[in-house]
């Protein structure tokens, strides 16, 4: 009974945005009242022409995961939440609900502009959805080589909420999809300037590097010996060392979609093989053992039937 009712409610919720879309567009709101249409258009043009003197990054990232996620991957997610002060963590999402619509709705409800969605399948494969929210694009990655921050080998530590320095390897400029990915990574992983949770110093650095067509992520603490806050001693930059903080992971892009959590496919990794296929292949390799044995046996039998042994003339020699 209860389920049914819920369902109907959900239906309504889904229906609502459509209604809004149908309604005539209201002029954008400003501090002093409604903008009239003309001005609004100008504003939009401004944004396009890149003349706006004022730029404010209001990125907010929703971080969630699917249900039945592995503890390791969950820790990875929590690590990311702790690294991104402009993120909001939400409850796990039911696996069946991972269709785009519900997630989009969720992101909208949380007032976020992008989303990191960790999808765990079969308790072993982690997929990461990275989406810019109302109108795309979105990327699906396969995540591998995961190391969380809890691992004791990673000995660095840094301020929670200090803005990271992002470093990208040059090969992000290589191709259109890498460029797009770079822009998305930049927007999602960079903490907005003057974010209220951000701290005013820079003591860690993110590395995004493309090696072997995978994006590798590393996070290092910057440790510089210095006396004053804003002055580096002579040669301080040379003496600077980095200590890894973690987490580590490696992203293999699978697909890029035009919309958020859906839409037309813009890019498909031509080399991608899903881990399921890999496992199936391995199983197949192992599986033929018994069948092979049986086959060999029958073959041998056939061979013996076809070429019978000649009777041994000396067989009775010693029998008397």
């Amino acid at each position: 009974m209860g389920k049914k009712r819920k369902h109907s409610e959900r239906g309504e919720v889904v229906a609502q945005p459509k209604m809004e879309e149908v309604a005539p567009e209201r002029p954008a709101r400003t501090l002093l009242g409604w903008k009239d249409k003309n001005q609004c258009n100008n504003e939009v043009d401004d944004n396009d022409n890149v003349d706006s003197p004022f730029f404010r990054n209001k990125e907010k990232v929703l971080v969630t995961c699917s249900r039945r996620i592995n503890y390791r991957y969950r820790h990875l997610m929590l690590n990311l939440v702790s690294l991104l002060p402009h993120s909001k963590k939400d409850n796990k999402v039911e696996s069946k609900e991972t269709k785009g619509a519900t997630l989009n709705e969720l992101v909208e409800l949380k007032n976020c502009s992008s989303c990191l969605f960790f999808e765990c399948r079969k308790q072993k494969d982690l997929y990461l959805w990275m989406a810019k929210c109302p109108n795309g694009p979105s990327v699906k990655f396969l995540v591998s080589a995961v190391h969380t921050m809890e691992e004791l080998k990673l000995t660095g530590n840094h301020l929670r909420g200090s803005r990271p320095i992002l470093t990208f390897s040059q090969n992000f400029e290589k191709d259109a999809h890498w460029k797009l990915l770079k822009e998305m990574l930049l927007q999602i992983f960079e903490t907005p300037k003057d974010h209220r949770k951000a701290k005013p110093f820079h003591d860690h650095v993110f590395v995004f590097s493309i090696v072997d067509d995978h994006i590798w992520f590393r996070n290092y603490q910057i440790s510089v010996h210095h006396n004053e806050s804003d002055k580096l001693p002579r040669g301080g930059l040379d003496k600077m060392t980095l200590i890894e903080v973690g987490p580590r992971f490696c992203l293999n892009p699978i697909k890029i979609f035009g919309g958020s959590f859906g839409g037309p496919t813009l890019y498909e990794n031509p080399f991608y093989v899903s881990p399921n296929q890999i496992r199936a292949l391995e199983k197949k390799k192992k599986s033929g053992k018994f069948a092979k044995k049986v086959k060999a046996k029958t073959r041998r039998k056939m061979h013996e039937m076809n070429n019978p042994l000649e009777p041994d003339e000396f067989a009775d020699m010693w029998k008397d």
Partner: peptide, 19 residues
Amino acid sequence: LSWPENVEWIHKLSVDIDQ
């Protein structure tokens, strides 16, 4: 998607490094 061209670097804090 991308931010306007003339966004100050301080917003991005990103560096490209040649391998």
